[in-house]
């Protein structure tokens, strides 16, 4: 047996899960699909005295429209998100990201909430959440609170969730009007974590000027990162006059602490990131122009 010993808890509701977490504190870890947690346990990179399995709680598996937003229960599996017509219609950026997550066997068990709570800086869903200003809803015995994506990702594999808090779901705002979305990433092999990638959204006005832009990069630091200067350069510009390669460079210009590893130096990653922004924006603008 590879993981170290732990006790297993299977609460039947979010409230019961919150009670279990309140009792066990940081000796416990929430288990949803396990596609990030199990590798870490098998390699003994992590060990916990208790696992709290929320994967079967029906309430946490819902994918539904809630007011102006799409609600993804934290235990909704990637494969369900990938297949959902509602997701494709309401938040196309999520549907773009799903096929890039691992392989289909991983997506049959992995969850969007798990990916976001695990907060790997090279993962797709956290970047999508950050790009769209999604809101994470956390439950504990102290009550429920909403955490904006901008303050949720605090570091490598670290989030604003307290040890006794359960991520119950994520609310993704729905964009209206002439919109386009795209994710582009460069990975050594399909399904691997990306060396660098970009998740973008654009909205155009009737005169084909960019009205709204969201650009998030992943693999470029300890957390996914928004590219503020690139967004500022996009807004107000006509699609015909944009130099997307320049916007790509702007997106990575101010980024320090870009990681270096055996897949590439910081400088290489920065160049890849710029090109991924350029390509994603090209695809998103083309889609929005058709709308």
């Amino acid at each position: 047996m590879k993981p170290s010993r732990f006790d297993y808890h299977r609460p039947t509701s979010p409230a019961e899960a919150a009670e279990v977490l309140a009792e066990l504190g940081d000796t416990a870890r929430v288990l949803a699909g396990g596609q990030s947690l199990l590798p870490m346990l098998n390699l003994r990179l992590a060990y916990f005295d208790h696992l709290v399995d929320v994967g079967r709680i029906e309430e946490l598996r819902r994918i539904e429209q809630r007011e102006g937003a799409l609600w993804l229960g934290a235990a909704a599996v990637d494969a369900a998100v990938e297949r959902s017509e509602l997701v494709r219609d309401a938040v196309p950026l999520l549907a773009e990201a799903s096929p890039l997550v691992g392989h289909f066997q991983i997506r049959n068990r992995g969850t969007v909430g798990g990916s976001i709570a695990h907060a790997d800086p090279a993962a797709e869903y956290p970047a999508v959440a950050l790009a769209l200003d999604a809101e994470m809803v956390a439950l504990s015995v102290r009550g429920e609170r909403t955490i904006p994506a901008a303050s949720f990702f605090t570091g490598h594999w670290s989030t604003a969730l307290e040890p006794d808090e359960l991520l119950v779901g994520v609310s993704f705002p729905r964009w209206a009007g002439r919109c386009g979305f795209a994710v582009r990433e460069m990975a050594r092999r399909h399904g691997d974590f990306a060396v660098a990638g970009a998740a973008v959204g654009v909205q155009l006005d009737d005169a084909s000027r960019v009205q709204r832009a969201a650009v998030a990069l992943f693999g470029m630091g300890a957390t996914p990162r928004r590219a503020g200067p690139a967004e500022a350069a996009l807004v107000g510009a006509g699609t015909g006059e944009l130099d997307l390669a320049e916007v790509g460079r702007l997106a990575v210009d101010g980024m320090d602490d870009v990681p270096a590893d055996l897949h590439g130096s910081s400088g290489y990653r920065r160049r890849v990131g710029a090109v991924m922004v350029e390509r994603a924006l090209g695809a998103a603008i083309e889609e929005a122009s058709r709308g």
């Binding site: 297993y8 288990l31 396990g34 596609q35 199990l38 590798p39 098998n42 494969a79 289909f104 066997q105 991983i106 049959n108 068990r109």
Partner: peptide, 9 residues
Amino acid sequence: AAVRSCLVL
């Protein structure tokens, strides 16, 4: 559903 049995308890 095809899954990795090393990543399922």
